[in-house]
Design a protein around this nucleic acid. Structure first.
Lengths: 343, 343
DNA sequence: TTTATTTGTGCAAACGTGTGCACACATTAC
DNA sequence: GTAATGTGTGCACACGTTTGCACAAATAAA
């Protein structure tokens, strides 16, 4: 009942293990006849090469390490779906670790993954991460890294992101055209790439329509909405302003949900008092009350593209001269939460 | 810059690899002095045993294979969170595969995972699966299996489930007490364990309150709601009945969402025309329109418990005489979608 | 016939760890 | 003085695969 090995085949056919090994991969100079015999026997007894042994020789594991902040997050869950899809069809498996927005955990996860000799890394940085030296080291010691979603420009490698600036630009323009004039923006930690890009799109739209950019309308949640107190604080600070906003644009799944819940808890009418839209990959924003206008990222696609690029790096060994920055489109889905018929 | 090995340490300290190996695990008879020297050197040069080499010897990989239907599903994403939590803290990693409710894919995933020599398996069966022979084989050849959520009683092993019957029982009782008399039940494939248990709870409640159990009020979705046509067909069939239901109890995340969306599309008032409640682990059912009454499973807990039990099996080697069936409580969260003030 | 070339196969080492056994040395017992 | 016991260390092989090299046999060239 034990798994059949190359040695078993060799004994059974009265050959050496080297011949069997070479016959199986049709390499070197092995006679047609021997190849046939070996392959038949292997097929018959359902031979599967031992991956640990292969790994030990090649110092590879046919595995990809993934670092992201949390699995139970609509966006990342979809990304994982895409990653698994491409990885599985190329016979790699994925090892998923969660940073929970903590720099320290991210560091620890990286160490664990390298220890497990993953062949490559797919990373979305934690909110706390400023220093990316650890990833640079990983790369320079031979483990390629591809960043997605929350990326860094301090490391030369492939990156895959959504068109964040365009997303917030279009969201903001939509709000303006719906009649909103005092648009606030609640976003993630100021150091992560997505926050900067999303802020830029928001500002660009305001300027284009000659609306003032007010510091007090821009709020940061240093843990991306994972800590609801942070979102609550942001919302509170907006609501006590002399001129309260008439719209809020949120920059992540969790922030959107939390913000929505808080406005409802305070009995603020959406969109009557405050219009609301934001980034969200929830499966059913149309069922909300009111149905939520969302900026939806191509999460599944992002996972697929990032994994494809990583596999290229892994299998080419040598790092290419110029790296790619893939930018995927964001979809604006207009629903009730931003349609102000009463204006 | 290469990783330091046991051989490196041996050479540096003028010892044999065996001595170093034994010193590192404080085993056998190695003098205090030598142990100290070795451990110091190992710590200084940040020695990490090569897991592939260890795995090759021990035929283990310190990894756990997971088979479930889909990652981007609120319930399973939370379960994965729990699995990862326990696995990581015991220095195991998890390899996640998706069956997408297909028996064939489940079979294929299992084969891949065994090939990767996982030390154990955490499985939630696909909707299509009737024959579980493949898992029995895996177990009898030394890879322990723990089933969660969708389990089978055809294999003797640990299982972890929610208290499904009690969940639907309480949900149904709640609907009855809200004034509903014609309660329909849309559930998953009839062969999966959760469907049977949930159906049983529903029937028990009806009988206890002397309401008739009508075949035409019980609908099955053979792919657990993944195919929205199936849910649409079920809802349609309910709506063309002479006596249309005044409540629907749905049995899975996807079915709940799809059903909700279809009722809204048809402008059916919830709960006025039809009250709705169902199993759901969405993060924000309170934001729905109307806020959704849900049966929430302890998904994170389920992942933790299942992984704990699996690790026991893995580390004890010998299968225990009697296996555990852990049953976790389900929470009924009452919200607007079932509150019929107008009755 | 000898020498080169081709073709197919096997030997042995390697990847990094773990472990049964033997061995050297020291101590104790008779 | 010999035998038994105890203590610490190293040898050698194993896990399953890959691969450089050698080598035997067959064929071709000189």
């Amino acid at each position: 009942m034990k798994a059949v090995t190359i040695t078993d085949i060799a004994k059974a056919l009265n050959l050496s293990t080297s011949t069997v090994s070479r016959a199986l991969k049709s390499s070197y100079k092995i006679s047609e006849e021997t190849q046939q015999k070996v392959k038949e026997y292997a097929a018959k007894y359902n031979y599967r090469p031992n991956l640990l042994a292969q790994g030990l020789k090649s110092m590879g594991s046919r595995s990809i390490g993934v670092i992201l902040c949390a699995i139970p997050n609509s966006f990342f869950a979809e990304v994982l779906n895409g990653i698994e899809f491409i990885a599985a069809s190329n016979n790699y498996h994925i090892i998923i670790t969660q940073s929970h927005e903590s720099y320290e955990k991210e560091l620890n996860n990286l160490e664990q993954l390298l220890w497990k000799s993953v062949d490559g890394l797919l990373v979305s940085l934690s909110c706390e991460t400023c220093d990316v030296e650890h990833f640079r080291n990983a790369q320079s010691e031979g483990t390629p890294v591809v960043f997605f979603d929350r990326v860094t420009n301090l490391i030369d490698t492939h990156t895959v992101v959504a068109d964040n600036a365009k997303g917030t630009y279009e969201g903001t323009v939509h709000l303006i055209k719906s009649g909103c004039k005092r648009i606030a923006h609640i976003t993630s930690a100021p150091n992560v790439s997505i926050s900067k890009e999303r802020l830029a799109g928001y500002i660009q739209a305001l300027k284009e329509f000659h609306l003032p950019v007010r510091e007090e309308y821009i709020k940061y949640c240093n843990h991306g909405g994972m800590i609801s107190d942070e979102v609550e604080k942001a919302v509170n600070e907006l609501l006590v302003l002399d001129e309260t906003p008439d719209a809020i644009l949120t920059a992540s799944d969790r922030i959107t949900i939390e913000c929505f819940a808080m406005l409802k808890k305070r009995n603020i009418k959406i969109p009557g008092d405050i219009a609301l839209t934001g980034f969200s990959n929830f499966s059913a924003p149309q069922l909300f009350n009111p149905a939520l206008t969302t900026l939806k990222q191509p999460a599944f696609e992002m996972g697929k593209v990032a994994t494809g690029l990583l596999l290229q790096l892994i299998e080419n060994k040598r790092l290419p001269k110029d790296f790619e920055k893939r930018v995927l489109p964001i979809e604006l889905h207009i629903r009730e939460s931003t349609v102000r018929s009463q204006m």
